[in-house]
Design a binder for these strands. Structure first.
Length: 836
RNA sequence: GCGAGAGUGGUGAAAUUGGCAGACACGCUAGACUUAGGAUCUAGUGCCUUACGGCGUAAGGGUUCAAGUCCCUUCUCUCGCACCA
């Protein structure tokens, strides 16, 4: 066993912090606003498999940052909790009959102890779990506010139905046509759903992104998801019919080029306008389209299919009669579910027109519409009153024309769709509404919240689309809060996103039973200064949370338009796996290393190559943090995760690599066993100390933890070479090590005679004078190639540098007898002599 | 297909404004030492070359006294979106 007693040290200090409530955050009004920091981690779903090495990465990063800020004198709020409603616990309940609360709370227990084992400086007094009635009371309360503002509505729209989970899924939860959770192929089913009108906030969600200190990549993803576009709605009349057909277009300037129209198969007008001759063909096509899953409909994009409806519309600008087709390349869920097709200037329409021999008309110059659609801008032709106009003017002119004739108007469209908010599930927040036959939908009075999740006999969904709650008659049957007559409760529950939409607010005031959080606490801490989590939540969670926050802002309940000022996404921690020649992957335990250092598959002796892959159970390359902590200690685990590389990029785990930081900490420990003296330290070490303090301070503030650690290693390697141990070189180092390896640092700090925790000790400053070098190495180059290196005074001027280079004997060898064209000197760096 | 990002030793990676490519760590090699440990310590370690020196940041080209860094072309990988009218 090692000399470094991390087991003992880590246990001791974790107990100390817990007993002394070292990291409790208080709303101290004497701390000015700019010295307060709210640093937030994305809270975990407490799954049955416990923590994996990915969780501690972000948590370690924020912990280091928080510990650093505390030592810099900041008042820091750093809470942790659990996103504890969710499908796995319920699916487990369905198969075993165990109440999801029981499994969930066991899992929370396990997660909490694992997280505590890493020595994170959370204020545990603020812990929240979304499944507790004290918490979901306020989730329900916020839902009621949305409902009262008209932001929640019922709709019978077709939804994505997972036949395995027997539940509806939001569009966003369907990945490649399969259920996000269980992978089952999703089907369409029509069901009554609660929907939240997030689209009403689309513009603000888009605009307010500007102010946020988020990566451009994440902002771009959100922008893309919201998908705002500007254009016009145009109404076409249908020949021999009273109907009008409304379409959305971003290119009203191409209206003269619209030679046909297309309806999505689900469009309500399809049945009304289809002619008798075409009815059979249309019905056959509709049936085919219905059977296609979304996956097929999007994947079969290469070959567009459709059918003529037999009906014609009138192009309002030129009175021409144009055919109306039905095709599934038009989506019912975007725009009006119908388009005007301009084959000259839209590639999809072009392909379709070619296939069905529909005329292609050029109305914007710039391409060759015989070869392909021209989607760019240019001068309008064949366009009546638009002829000769540039695209931008043509668009304006056409919109004005449409508006003046009452045939259309300027319009904005979004890809973003409203949020399907109900789940036919047991393990979620009950939606606090009552259906009354005379009063309609009535909210449960706020003073009666929480609406408790009742106990049930069976967690199995009814299979009809209703949640297990529908089977409990004495819960479902209630009286109307309004008129007192018999009424029925809403039996849908909320999705898992609900609880995570506002948890960062509950941490501010977690035991408040009067409101979700007091104004004082919100004012004191908000907004979140730094939010760290996985990129997988880049769109959904962050968009939903921002939406709820804006609603609360409109209600006057929060003081900021945006909840999270700075967002950092940590990269994924991957692992090595082994790959056969045919690129298939081999599980970890079926590979062994040969004597020559190559890898072979055990039973076939086939050579395999190590490659980086996601950790997965099937590849058996999952790293368990408990084992790492047991063998190397939490401080090593923390430091290694930060040493691997930049926080934001994904990087492969290597337990061998971890031994590097373990050895470093062991070396620090062995240093501490030397006698500490009070003498004057050697100048070169003092200078190195100050450079180290500077680099660690700057890098920690920028979350560049890997380079900060490297610098501490450099320092310790030098310090180790010196005999003895100078207190003035040692104590500041312990303080800068503290955020990274807090257990060891506390122990060493105590060894130096301190009696309290270093958690609030003053972060050491550095002396800029000592960080400066009097002498630097200067490179002499001839034609850009390094020919000599010399030490020179840092303030040598360019002239002196040039002269010294020209006089240098190695340089003379290269320049003698040649013409010097030019000489460049860069102070402290180099001299370059250009010769011919 | 579109969009974003990335390609640096055997490996993870460093490298203000263009200014010594490879810090730090793993691994490897040699030696020392021993309380034989998951040790530890010392030295070495980009490639070619006995040396002088040459070549090296995915490939090719360009700008510059000087390019990992700036510009152009190509390739590969990762992520996101996927008929958004």
């Amino acid at each position: 066993m090692s000399k470094y007693p991390f087991h003992q040290i880590e246990k001791k200090w974790q107990q100390h912090w817990e007993e002394h409530k070292t990291f409790r955050a208080k709303e101290d009004p004497s701390v000015p606003r700019e010295r307060r920091a709210y640093v937030l981690d994305m809270f975990p779903y407490p799954s049955g498999s416990g923590l994996h090495v990915g969780h501690p990465e972000g948590y370690t990063a924020t912990d280091i940052y928080c510990r650093y800020l505390r030592m810099k004198g900041y008042n820091v709020l750093h809470p942790m909790g659990f996103d504890s409603f969710g499908l796995p616990a319920e699916n487990y309940a369905i198969t075993t009959g165990t109440h999801p609360r029981i499994t969930t709370e066991q899992n929370i227990e396990k997660f909490r102890s694992q997280i505590k084992g890493l020595g994170f400086s959370y204020d545990w007094d603020r812990e929240v779990s979304t499944h507790t009635p004290e918490y979901y009371r306020w989730t329900q309360w916020i839902f009621l506010q949305l409902f009262k503002r008209g932001l929640a509505y019922e709709s019978d729209t077709p939804i994505n139905w997972c036949p395995d989970c027997l539940t509806g899924l939001a569009n966003e939860e369907v990945i490649d046509g399969a259920c996000d959770r269980c992978g089952t192929q999703v089907r369409r089913k029509t069901i009554r759903q609660w929907i939240l009108k997030i689209t009403e906030y689309a513009d603000r969600l888009l605009e307010d992104l500007e102010k946020l200190d988020w990566s451009d990549a994440i902002k771009a993803m959100q922008r893309n998801w919201i998908g705002r576009s500007e254009g016009a709605n145009v109404r076409f009349s249908v020949e021999r019919s009273e109907e009008t057909l409304s379409v959305y277009t971003t290119r009203p300037d191409t209206l003269f080029g619209a030679t046909y129209m297309v309806l999505a198969p689900e469009h309500p007008l399809v049945k009304k306008i289809t002619s008798d001759e075409q009815r059979e063909a249309v019905e056959a096509y509709l049936e085919k389209a219905e059977k296609k899953s979304d996956l097929e409909r999007t994947d079969l994009a290469k070959e567009k299919t459709g059918v003529f409806s037999g009906a014609y519309a009138v192009n309002p600008v030129n009175g021409k009669s144009i055919p109306i087709w039905i095709a599934d390349y038009v989506l019912i869920s975007y725009g009006s579910g119908a388009i005007m097709a301009v084959p000259g200037h839209d590639q999809r329409d072009w392909e379709y027109a070619r296939k069905y021999h529909i005329p292609v008309v050029e109305v914007v110059q710039g391409g060759d519409v015989e070869q392909e659609a021209y989607e760019g801008t240019g001068i309008n032709v064949n366009s009546g009153f638009l002829d000769g106009l540039q695209t931008e003017e043509a668009i304006e002119s056409m919109i004005n024309w449409l508006e003046s004739k009452g045939l259309g108007e300027r319009a904005v469209n979004y890809k973003l769709r409203d949020w399907v908010f109900s789940r036919q599930r047991y393990w979620g927040e009950p939606i606090p509404l009552v259906h009354c036959s005379s009063c309609g939908i009535v909210p449960v009075p706020e003073e009666n919240l929480p609406l408790m999740l009742p106990e049930v006999d069976s967690y199995t969904p009814s299979g009809t689309g209703e949640s297990p709650l529908a089977k409990i008659d004495d819960w479902v049957n209630t009286s109307c809060p309004n008129c007192g007559e018999a009424a029925k409760r809403e039996t849908n529950t909320m999705p898992q996103w609900a609880g995570s939409c506002w948890y960062y607010l509950r941490y501010l005031d977690p035991r408040n039973d009067q409101e979700f959080a007091s104004q004082e606490c919100i004012d004191y801490w908000m907004p979140v200064n730094l939010y760290v989590g996985g990129a997988e939540h880049a769109v959904l969670h962050l968009l939903y949370a921002r939406f709820w926050h804006k609603v609360l802002y409109d209600l006057g309940k929060v003081n900021t338009k945006e909840p999270f000022m700075r967002l950092v996404n940590q990269g994924m921690i991957t692992s090595y796996a082994y790959q056969r020649r045919d690129k298939s992957l081999v599980p970890h335990d079926e590979v062994e290393e040969t004597e020559s250092g190559a890898y072979v598959e055990k039973h076939t002796r086939e050579p395999v190559e190590p490659v980086v892959a996601k950790m997965s159970k099937s590849l058996k390359n999952v790293i368990n943090p408990d084992e790492i902590i047991e063998s190397y200690g939490a401080d090593s685990m923390r430091m290694y995760e930060m040493f691997m590389g930049p926080l934001q990029v994904s990087k492969p785990w290597s337990t061998k690599g971890l031994t590097g930081v373990y050895r470093f900490l062991d070396r620090v420990w062995r240093l501490s066993q030397r006698e500490v003296t009070d003498g004057q330290p050697p100048q070169h070490l003092l200078k190195l100390l100050h450079k180290t303090i500077k680099k660690v301070s700057v890098d920690t503030g920028n979350l560049d933890f890997n380079t900060a650690i490297a610098q501490m290693m450099v320092y310790i390697n030098e310090l180790f070479k010196q005999e003895g141990l100078c207190r003035s070189l040692w104590e500041p180092f312990i303080l800068i090590l503290a955020p990274y390896a807090p257990h060891l640092a506390e122990e060493l700090y105590q060894q130096l005679g301190h009696h309290s925790s270093l958690a609030y000790a003053e972060w050491p400053g550095w002396d800029e004078q000592l960080c400066r070098e009097e002498e630097t190495e200067v490179v002499f180059q001839v034609n850009g190639k390094v020919r000599a290196k010399v030490m020179m005074s840092a303030d040598a001027d360019e002239q002196a540098m040039k002269q010294s280079a020209l006089d240098h004997e190695k340089i003379r060898k290269w320049i003698d007898g040649r013409d010097i064209v030019k000489t460049i000197a860069v102070p402290k760096k180099l001299v370059n002599i250009v010769v011919k």
